[in-house]
Amino acid sequence: MSTEIASPSLLRPSPVSVTRVIGAALLLALAAFAVLGPWLVQADPAKQDFSASLAPIGGEYLLGADHYGRSLLARLAHGARLSFGMAFLTMLTAAIPGVLLGLAAAWRGGWLEWTLELLANIVLALPGLMLVLLLLAFAPGNFGPLYFGLALTLWVEFYRITRTTTATILKQPHIEAAKLLGFGSGYILRSYVLPSIAPLIATLAAFAMATAIIAISTLSAISVGLQPPTPELGSMIVELLPYYAEAPVHVLLPPILIFLLVLGLQLIAQKDSR
């Protein structure tokens, strides 16, 4: 369902653009790295070797080693699996209810819209950071509540964009005319609403995944949710940051992975100029 919403045009026979192919290839490569990487890279991501502290890239360690002398290749592979997986789940848990509720609110209006608006407003009015920190207090040292807390705040973004945009579309004269002419709501949804909101939602979804990973990294920076030695892309950045002057490329490796992920998603989500 969500993929349908996120990129409906993928399902329709449309000329395959080069951009999309690059995006898809990028995502496939990342998925392979995250899924197969931990399995192919034999090194233990938690194994320390002080004599290899901050080993350079391309030497004995393919992607270098962090300050503890742990293989960065192994850590990136394991980290990609954990972070991408969790970010994807978070995005889905936020996007599915967000978009569905947004559509429902715009479509039905009335008390449903009113209730949903109130709910969204209350969630927004509560500092999201507080929600995450509080959830975490119940299950310290777990990534689960961290991501769940993020999804709790992220869905509102999807909901609001969907509701506002859909409401605007539904009030356009030709849609109102189509309704009067007796076209079914399914038809209107498919031919008018979805094509308009899809690119917005896809853009949001791509960024939401990045937001999730970056949020974890932000929380790690204030020592929340740290769980050594688990390799997680966001907390890896925090761990490596103090060494920015000596090993700048090492620090940038996890952000590069995040960059490739968001780029791939953006390229796929890109609306073509037809």
Binding site: A210, I214, T218, A221, G234, V238, L241, V251, P255, I256
Partner: peptide, 8 residues
Amino acid sequence: LRSLPPFV
């Protein structure tokens, strides 16, 4: 810009 944590 989105791939860099704010502190970086």
